[in-house]
Amino acid sequence: MKINTSYFGEVEIDSKEVISFEQGLPGFLDEKEFVLLSFDEPLAFQVLQSINTEALAFIVVFPFDFKKEYRVDLNDQILEQLSIKSEEEVLILSIVTLKDHLTNSTANLQAPIVVNRHSRLGKQYIMHQSNYSTKEKIFNSSNVKGEK
Protein backbone atom coordinates (compact mmCIF):
# COMPACT_ATOMS: atom_id res chain seq x y z
CA MET A 1 0.00 0.00 0.00
CA LYS A 2 1.14 3.57 -0.64
CA ILE A 3 1.11 6.29 1.99
CA ASN A 4 2.17 9.93 2.07
CA THR A 5 4.77 10.76 4.68
CA SER A 6 6.27 13.84 6.28
CA TYR A 7 9.90 12.98 5.60
CA PHE A 8 9.90 10.65 2.59
CA GLY A 9 7.01 11.78 0.38
CA GLU A 10 4.96 8.93 -1.05
CA VAL A 11 6.27 5.49 -0.03
CA GLU A 12 5.20 1.91 -0.53
CA ILE A 13 4.75 -0.02 2.71
CA ASP A 14 3.92 -3.60 3.48
CA SER A 15 0.64 -3.80 5.41
CA LYS A 16 2.30 -6.46 7.59
CA GLU A 17 4.63 -3.74 8.92
CA VAL A 18 1.79 -1.57 10.29
CA ILE A 19 1.89 -1.14 14.06
CA SER A 20 -1.55 -0.87 15.68
CA PHE A 21 -1.99 1.38 18.69
CA GLU A 22 -5.45 0.32 19.83
CA GLN A 23 -5.76 3.30 22.19
CA GLY A 24 -3.91 5.72 19.95
CA LEU A 25 -1.06 7.78 21.34
CA PRO A 26 -1.44 10.41 24.07
CA GLY A 27 -2.65 13.56 22.33
CA PHE A 28 -3.50 11.59 19.17
CA LEU A 29 -6.14 9.13 20.33
CA ASP A 30 -7.72 8.79 16.89
CA GLU A 31 -4.40 7.85 15.26
CA LYS A 32 -4.13 4.10 15.61
CA GLU A 33 -1.93 2.90 12.74
CA PHE A 34 1.74 3.74 12.26
CA VAL A 35 4.72 2.36 10.42
CA LEU A 36 8.40 2.57 11.32
CA LEU A 37 10.51 4.05 8.52
CA SER A 38 14.29 4.38 8.37
CA PHE A 39 16.46 7.18 7.06
CA ASP A 40 19.18 6.23 4.58
CA GLU A 41 21.73 7.99 6.77
CA PRO A 42 23.80 6.05 9.31
CA LEU A 43 22.16 7.84 12.25
CA ALA A 44 20.08 5.71 14.60
CA PHE A 45 17.00 7.88 14.11
CA GLN A 46 13.84 6.43 12.58
CA VAL A 47 10.37 7.80 11.89
CA LEU A 48 7.16 6.52 13.44
CA GLN A 49 4.77 7.66 10.70
CA SER A 50 0.97 7.68 10.84
CA ILE A 51 -0.35 5.81 7.84
CA ASN A 52 -3.46 8.04 7.74
CA THR A 53 -2.10 11.52 8.48
CA GLU A 54 0.89 12.63 6.43
CA ALA A 55 1.89 15.41 8.85
CA LEU A 56 1.94 13.13 11.89
CA ALA A 57 5.37 11.60 12.28
CA PHE A 58 7.60 11.18 15.30
CA ILE A 59 11.37 10.88 15.20
CA VAL A 60 12.29 7.90 17.38
CA VAL A 61 15.46 6.26 18.59
CA PHE A 62 16.47 3.05 20.34
CA PRO A 63 17.13 4.33 23.87
CA PHE A 64 19.65 1.57 24.64
CA ASP A 65 21.96 3.01 21.97
CA PHE A 66 22.73 6.03 24.14
CA LYS A 67 21.67 4.93 27.64
CA LYS A 68 23.01 1.40 28.11
CA GLU A 69 21.60 1.06 31.64
CA TYR A 70 18.06 2.07 30.60
CA ARG A 71 15.40 -0.25 31.98
CA VAL A 72 11.69 -0.54 31.24
CA ASP A 73 9.74 -2.74 33.63
CA LEU A 74 6.56 -3.69 31.83
CA ASN A 75 3.63 -4.48 34.08
CA ASP A 76 1.25 -7.41 33.57
CA GLN A 77 -1.39 -5.14 32.04
CA ILE A 78 0.81 -3.95 29.18
CA LEU A 79 2.19 -7.46 28.62
CA GLU A 80 -1.39 -8.65 28.21
CA GLN A 81 -2.52 -5.67 26.08
CA LEU A 82 0.35 -6.21 23.65
CA SER A 83 0.26 -10.03 23.79
CA ILE A 84 3.89 -10.12 24.89
CA LYS A 85 5.09 -13.58 25.87
CA SER A 86 8.88 -13.15 25.75
CA GLU A 87 11.51 -10.44 25.93
CA GLU A 88 12.52 -11.13 22.32
CA GLU A 89 9.13 -9.86 21.12
CA VAL A 90 9.66 -6.41 22.66
CA LEU A 91 10.84 -3.36 20.74
CA ILE A 92 11.38 -0.21 22.80
CA LEU A 93 11.58 3.22 21.14
CA SER A 94 11.83 6.74 22.53
CA ILE A 95 10.32 9.81 20.93
CA VAL A 96 12.96 12.43 20.16
CA THR A 97 12.75 16.19 20.37
CA LEU A 98 15.19 17.50 17.78
CA LYS A 99 16.98 20.74 18.59
CA ASP A 100 18.61 23.26 16.24
CA HIS A 101 21.99 21.84 17.22
CA LEU A 102 21.59 18.07 16.92
CA THR A 103 23.78 17.39 19.95
CA ASN A 104 21.21 19.17 22.16
CA SER A 105 18.39 16.82 21.11
CA THR A 106 16.55 14.88 23.81
CA ALA A 107 14.54 11.68 24.09
CA ASN A 108 11.52 10.84 26.22
CA LEU A 109 12.70 7.97 28.41
CA GLN A 110 9.81 8.32 30.86
CA ALA A 111 7.21 7.29 28.27
CA PRO A 112 8.71 4.83 25.78
CA ILE A 113 6.89 3.36 22.82
CA VAL A 114 6.56 -0.40 23.38
CA VAL A 115 5.90 -2.62 20.36
CA ASN A 116 5.35 -6.34 20.11
CA ARG A 117 7.48 -7.23 17.07
CA HIS A 118 5.29 -10.25 16.22
CA SER A 119 1.72 -9.09 16.83
CA ARG A 120 2.59 -5.51 15.67
CA LEU A 121 0.67 -4.08 18.65
CA GLY A 122 2.05 -0.91 20.23
CA LYS A 123 1.47 1.44 23.13
CA GLN A 124 3.15 4.44 24.67
CA TYR A 125 3.94 3.28 28.19
CA ILE A 126 4.11 6.05 30.77
CA MET A 127 6.37 5.04 33.64
CA HIS A 128 5.05 7.07 36.57
CA GLN A 129 7.57 5.75 39.10
CA SER A 130 10.67 6.44 37.06
CA ASN A 131 14.04 8.10 37.47
CA TYR A 132 14.00 8.98 33.78
CA SER A 133 12.75 12.23 32.31
CA THR A 134 10.92 13.28 29.18
CA LYS A 135 14.04 15.24 28.12
CA GLU A 136 17.04 12.94 28.47
CA LYS A 137 20.02 14.15 26.44
CA ILE A 138 20.83 11.77 23.61
CA PHE A 139 24.36 12.99 23.00
CA ASN A 140 27.08 13.53 25.56
CA SER A 141 30.84 13.85 25.44
CA SER A 142 31.31 10.08 25.58
CA ASN A 143 29.08 9.21 22.64
CA VAL A 144 29.57 12.10 20.19
CA LYS A 145 32.76 12.03 18.12
CA GLY A 146 34.58 15.31 17.97
CA GLU A 147 32.81 16.77 21.01
CA LYS A 148 34.93 17.90 23.96
Rank of each mutant, 00 (worst) to 15 (best):
H128R: 12
L121H: 07
A111V: 10
H128A: 14
P112R: 00
F139L: 10
T103E: 13
S119W: 04
N143H: 10
T134D: 05
H128S: 03
I138M: 10
H101Q: 14
M127G: 02
E147R: 06
E147Q: 09
I113P: 04
F139T: 07
Q124M: 14
N108S: 06
V114I: 14
T97E: 12
K148Y: 07
K148H: 05
L121D: 00
V96K: 02
L98Q: 06
Y125L: 04
L102G: 10
V144F: 10
N104A: 04
T134K: 01
L109R: 08
Y125R: 11
N108Y: 02
K99R: 15
K145S: 03
T97C: 09
F139H: 04
M127R: 07
I113N: 02
N143P: 10
N116T: 12
A107G: 00
G122P: 06
P112D: 00
K99G: 03
Q129E: 14
L109A: 15
R117L: 15
K148P: 05
K99Y: 05
H128K: 11
S130D: 13
A107L: 08
K135Q: 11
Q129F: 07
V114M: 06
S133N: 12
S133D: 15
A107R: 02
R120A: 06
Y125I: 09
H101N: 15
V144S: 08
A111S: 14
Y132V: 00
V96H: 13
Y132S: 05
G146N: 09
N143Y: 04
V144N: 00
I126D: 09
D100P: 15
T103K: 11
K99W: 03
Y132R: 06
R117A: 13
G122F: 09
S105E: 15
N143L: 07
L98P: 00
N131P: 03
L109T: 12
S142K: 10
N104G: 04
L98I: 14
Y132A: 04
K99F: 06
H101V: 15
E147Y: 01
V115M: 08
S142T: 15
V96Q: 09
R117C: 07
H118S: 07
K137T: 11
N140H: 10
H101P: 00
F139D: 04
G146I: 05
R120G: 11
S130L: 11
F139R: 09
S105Q: 15
S119D: 05
E136K: 01
H101W: 11
D100F: 02
H128W: 02
P112M: 03
T134M: 13
V144P: 01
